[in-house]
Design a binder for these strands. Structure first.
Lengths: 348, 348
DNA sequence: ACTATTTTGACAACCGATTGCCATACGCTG
DNA sequence: CAGCGTATGGCAATCGGTTGTCAAAATAGT
């Protein structure tokens, strides 16, 4: 009689068989309309407790799970959040991704992870694509220019990470604030000639770090030169190390740990000792910074937590009702972690 | 007249404004039915070339992008593939994820990345969820038992990584095949008392590695004992190192590089030198294995490529027409990479 | 020129859920 | 018991596409 011919509905099966159940199956089983089922599940107070319980029982028995596509189509909410990173290979983003993943899952959202390959075009087209398939996006280290980013943010809820654009909520990992610490640390070891090994030219992070460092250097009357730009990969470390050696500095503050670790390897290859011949300070304290050789002095920050905060800020935008303070800028503290890659200036 | 009142349709705007265009907008603009637009875009040969071109031009002008939710709902294909990993923190999976991400994107699919938290229950419920929101799944290092996994595979296209279950296509990273190499390497340094530091009890990979190692050991008349199980994290390395020291062996072959690196750190803390006092061999050659201290001797395999192969195999299932040989088992070669963490047996 | 055949495109049902609107049925007050 | 308010649940439209069916138009054949 009813259109319910799925596998023997005995007891609870460990995993559903046949076609997944729909609200229509439940409706048929309970002898009510599909809309009633929908209401019973979404607005329980809108339907009589007796029917509601009948429906809920049937839903359990049939292993009903709402079809997210259909839900998305009618409600306009997809339950997904896009996370854009320039390079999925970079361990820095691993920590970030882990943070977003955990927090999104806790909130019942699905994470759409996309690697934009350090390309502004890929980033723009991904954003356009995501406009319809995600409720919001978290964009880490955007390679887009300010206008394009602001335009994209106007079209859908967005939170940026390490990127400041007017009107776009952002999580800023405040590495620049640790630059004076790092410089003082080096000065305390007697260094007076320091280089900043910079990251990608379009990276706002790199620019901010350089600005903070050169300001601090000026205050202290120390010479700081800038090398680079270098791609944020360990392989770039070789060129960076050679440039540092050639420049004659005794210490480097490096855009990120990836390049710093590459420099460590290259300096070793060239027979130079760290920190005896050259001191190295990294940024980010990524996986590996504590066990490389020598362990890297670096600027640590709660990256995973930054991911979680970014998600919270995005969710606050999505559900304006619930959230309390709707901050639109969150700064993550950073501090210098001293390990073995920094030491006294060479006596020579 | 027409229902087209989006922003001035002049030239090509860098990014669309207002509500995204639908096939209905295009239909109205061209004066045809929506279904014709759908066909013009999907089965071009099914519609007159003149109308087709008109429609395509309109689509471009309106920045039309199909709504993936709607497409999924009616066609049943979501254009998404789930990738399940037990621990998104583990660098081993980073490489895998990168491989799947790249290949999926190349094929026009979206990657849904999920961390199953080393839990079979989370894994099962994720799989159930994904049944409706993804066209297929790639399951790495499943924690599910064989029956549950086979049952899940019967419901949707699936490829496993490092997990052999009858009837489920798999990519196997053949680390076991390098075990004899690793053992011979240690024997050549004079080691006769070796320990296998095992991974999670439910890990099939760990079991296979142990089986291969103990078989090789028996052939060669070498004593190999098993320690563990240990969780695949660097933190477990401390306990593993202590266990190894206590057991009196002179060399360890470790389930994975994460634990191995943790052991390196712990042994150093305890004042033991590697490889002078103890030799360590890891598995996987993850990010960091080449720059830890000492650099880790380990079994390398093309993990990223494994991810790409897994995607290819899955896509072959999804589009049975195109693909040629529909292999259902792919074995990735592995070899020993000798670095600094192995050396002669202590003379004491 | 007239019929036979093929092309072309419109109509409408459908995918699975949500939601505004409305009709019924119930409970209550007077 | 009339009259009214409210709790309840069904109908149908909608989201944006896809696709089977069929009629009209264009083409071919004799």
């Amino acid at each position: 009689m009813f259109a319910v011919q799925r596998g023997t509905p005995m007891a609870t099966q460990p995993m559903a068989t046949g076609r997944p159940a729909t609200i229509h199956d439940i409706a048929a089983l309970c002898g009510v309309a599909a809309s009633t089922v929908s209401r019973a599940l979404a607005n329980p107070e809108r339907v009589n407790i007796r029917t509601r319980e009948r429906i809920q029982a049937a839903a359990v028995e049939l292993h009903y799970t709402p079809n997210s596509q259909a839900k998305a189509l009618s409600s306009g909410k997809t339950g997904a959040v896009g996370v854009l990173v320039p390079d999925i290979t970079n361990p820095f983003y691993f920590d970030l991704i882990r943070g977003t993943q955990l927090q999104l899952k806790a909130a019942g959202y699905t994470q759409l992870l996309v690697d934009t390959e350090e390309s502004d075009e890929v980033e723009a087209s991904t954003l356009e694509q995501l406009r319809k398939s995600a409720d919001g996006v978290i964009v880490a280290a955007s390679r887009l220019n300010d206008d394009a980013l602001a335009a994209a943010a106007a079209l859908m809820p967005m939170v940026t990470v390490n990127r400041d654009v007017d009107g776009v909520p952002a999580v800023i990992i405040d590495t620049p604030s640790a630059m004076p610490q790092a410089l003082d640390h080096l000065i305390s070891w007697g260094h007076t000639s320091v280089a900043y090994v910079s990251g990608p030219a379009v990276s706002q992070s790199s620019a901010r770090r350089w600005a903070a460092l050169s300001a601090a250097a000026e205050e202290r009357g120390v010479e700081v030169r800038r090398l680079g730009p270098f791609a944020p990969k360990t392989q770039s470390g070789a060129a960076a190390a050679d440039a540092a050696v050639h420049s004659g500095v005794t210490a480097c503050i490096v855009f990120n740990d990836l390049i710093a670790i590459g420099m460590l390897q290259r300096l070793r290859e060239r027979g130079l000792r760290v920190p005896e011949d050259m001191s190295i300070v990294g940024c980010d304290d990524i996986f590996g910074a504590d066990f490389c050789n020598p362990p890297l002095t670096t600027m640590s920050s709660p990256i995973e937590q930054a991911g979680r905060v970014a998600v919270s800020m995005l969710l606050a935008q999505l559900n304006p009702l619930a959230g309390g303070g709707n901050r639109n800028r969150s700064v993550m503290p950073t501090h210098l972690t001293v390990r073995g890659s920094t030491g006294p200036v060479p006596s020579a």
